[in-house]
Design a protein around this nucleic acid. Structure first.
Lengths: 228, 228
DNA sequence: CGACTGATTGAAAGTGGTCAACAAAAGTGG
DNA sequence: CCACTTTTGTTGACCACTTTCAATCAGTCG
């Protein structure tokens, strides 16, 4: 593994506080790997054998059922994923695939669990990371159940703007079909919803978005500390 | 606190493996309390100060936004709740209220965190419990995003049947309005969806449900290990 | 009994989905 | 680099499902 990967992982919230001895032991059998775009890394239903840490690129977590599928989360570096399945040593509930060429570090879940038992500081960080993931899923579910499609989209656009330093203009970071699936609607509905938001000062050309009436949009989105 | 409450909590998966010394220390400031029905125990946005353990009765976890609300989970004894907020020491994302008269044990979250640091066996159990909660929320979200309302209802009825020993007839355990909210639809829609399921052999009279064609219903519900 | 809450039903409206056609981009291979 | 293919995005027409609102019915509880 590249030493900068190692350093980057070490500096992740998850691994920052563990002792060097435990970190080294845990990483002993870990390895980094490059994956091309659109490669499925995890298949739902399979057993968790490695904790994955995304170092470069981006990852989609999605679920499948009866030929349908839905995007559950979109991950950016540096973040771990499938922590819960590793801990429970249970089948994955979600699949994962790369959205672009990505670099992922794989840590054997048995070594993760051993480190957890040996190092209380690490245990604290693991449980905090997992709590973060849980709360993130709760937020996603709340948005699905409490907001309409248009409201979800409005909130999503505002969050993108915030991520870009409150810019009025920014580019959509992913394909629209992916965003649609994440928001729980079809691509056609997204296309129409974007047009409908022109009334709230949203203008879209290709991947380029411009917000001309932030207040109106915010009123519709109703951004909430407890949901967004 | 009643000694049987204490014993019951001690035998919970969460607390079974910790040392007696740590259990006693953690429970030192804990206390049990009876609450009447329909009492709100937790308000979303407030700070987590106690881990709650439901010993008797039932609890609804729900979320509110802009005057709307939605049932996120329904808990039965014995189960803990708001573990994630305790761990993160963060505002609750969900509110909680009793559905019926309930008995709840309250453990100061600071004591919980202290026990977590001192006792690796307990730490393992906490993280497993949290992973269970996370996975439960993932399942709920999958069902919302991948299934239609009718499919969700079919799956819900089949799960109720399983819970009743695969009985063909059983009573709905909660008010229909609550079930509707949990399934992400209005009470009116639930009423109509139940009627529509007559085609799959579902017959309802009041709270009494009878399934006369399990196979047809199962085909619609598409029960799945990774979602149900 | 009368008041209240929850459940059902009907009618109307709205929202989002499906299907099909087409346009626009992006990727592929000569 | 260009032509071709494939994928992604948009638009229209139509439909299914769900919600909303209102009225009614059915229990429950003082």
């Amino acid at each position: 593994m590249r030493s900068e990967d190692r350093a980057e992982i070490r500096s992740l919230g998850l691994f920052r506080n563990m002792t060097t001895a435990n970190f080294d032991a845990m990483m002993h059998a870990a390895y980094a790997q490059e994956f091309p775009a659109q490669l499925q890394l995890v298949r739902q239903g399979s057993r968790a054998t490695f904790l994955h840490v995304l170092v470069e690129g981006s990852i989609e977590l999605f679920s499948e059922w009866q030929g349908r599928d839905s995007t559950m989360a979109i991950l950016r570096p540096v973040s771990s994923f499938i922590l819960a399945a590793c801990i429970r040593d249970a089948p994955h509930l979600m699949s994962a695939r790369t959205l672009e060429a990505s670099r992922v570090v794989l840590i054997p879940s048995a070594d993760l669990r051993a480190a957890f038992r040996r190092d209380a500081d690490f245990a604290v960080d693991v449980v905090e990371e997992l709590a973060r993931c849980y709360r993130s899923m709760v937020r996603h579910t709340k948005s699905l159940k409490l907001r309409s499609a248009r409201e979800r989209l409005a909130a999503y656009l505002l969050k993108l703007s915030v991520r870009n330093g409150n810019a009025a203009g920014f580019a959509l970071p992913y394909e629209k079909r992916l965003i649609a699936s994440y928001l729980g609607i079809t691509p056609e509905s997204l296309s129409r919803a974007l047009k409908a938001l022109a009334a709230e000062g949203v203008h879209v050309q290709g991947t380029r978005v411009t917000l001309t009436d932030r207040d109106r949009l915010a009123a519709l989105a109703g951004l909430d500390e407890l949901m967004d």
